[in-house]
Amino acid sequence: MNDLLSVQNLSLSISKNGEKFFPVRDVSFSINPSEIIGIIGESASGKTLTTQAILQLLTPNIALESGRILFQNDDILQKNEKEMTAIRGKEIAYIPQNPHSSLNPTQKIGSQITEVLMRHLKVAKKESIALGIQALEKVKIPYPEKCFYLYPHELSGGMKQRVIIAMALALKPKIIIADEPTTALDVTLQKEILHLLKMVHIEHKIGILFITHDMAVASHLCDKILVMYAGEIIERGLTKDIINTPKHPYTKMLLEAVPTLDKDKYHNPLRVTAGTVPQLKQTHTICPFIDRCPKSMLICTKQKPLTFNQKSKVNCWLYDERNTTNRDQKPQKKLPEKEVAGSR
């Protein structure tokens, strides 16, 4: 295995009311420094838990059911806390979702950066200050020397997120895991942050695992996309393949739900299939999308779909060779649809 980070058959379980359910089921993927991987899914699809599992940041009520995560051919799920602190930040950096609450409000920015530097690089305070200011420069923060001595509440959201990215970069990690970094920010800042991440990836050859629920963002930034639903990866492939020719019904649904300014389409109501991502008990018996899928078939209720190679890899029975029905037909049954405002 030459992948830098390889997640193999990861499954996590939570006990609720005496029943176990699986927010992450048999997830496998890998990251290399040369690529930006995007994970897309709705809320509760298991995206955040997967990434937290990589760094062992899970809360105690979540148990590891099975799987390995190999980082440089070393199973990091087996490591103890002390070994993990050496990896976190230095080898694998994490950018959390909400920059507003991730920074300690009673500590100056500079101090929060230098503590990380001093801990991992074992440098003296003076040197760490210099390195810290350099890191702030890299993320294009104006007047980094001044910013160093400010408190978090004196910065704007975009700046805070940049500071966090600076912290992530300063140690020159091999992989950055970005958990919906732009969700809590205004759209205008999105572009800047994405641009920054892309530059970081190209300049320093750092692999990025980018989580989002926004297709547009993913299409802009990522090389490969993994679509997750109910804890499983149901489609994976190159960005252009998935965006242009989505195969799985769920992926198609996600793309259809994106509001568009396209003249032909914008008179139509936004079509969204009713329902939410389920929390499922069993792991391997059926396809999880079955209750919302317009094209569900008998076989979908009997067996979990295998992976089929189309341009992208899809977990859907529609793409079984034995399936003679036309996959691109109109849906056979009418599912309850929600009309979303914005039409006419």
Partner: peptide, 22 residues
Amino acid sequence: MSLNNLFEPASFSLKEYLVTNK
């Protein structure tokens, strides 16, 4: 069950697979 039947459209309720709020 013949091969053809397997690929026929069918709908399904996920009820028994869902975690319940007992």
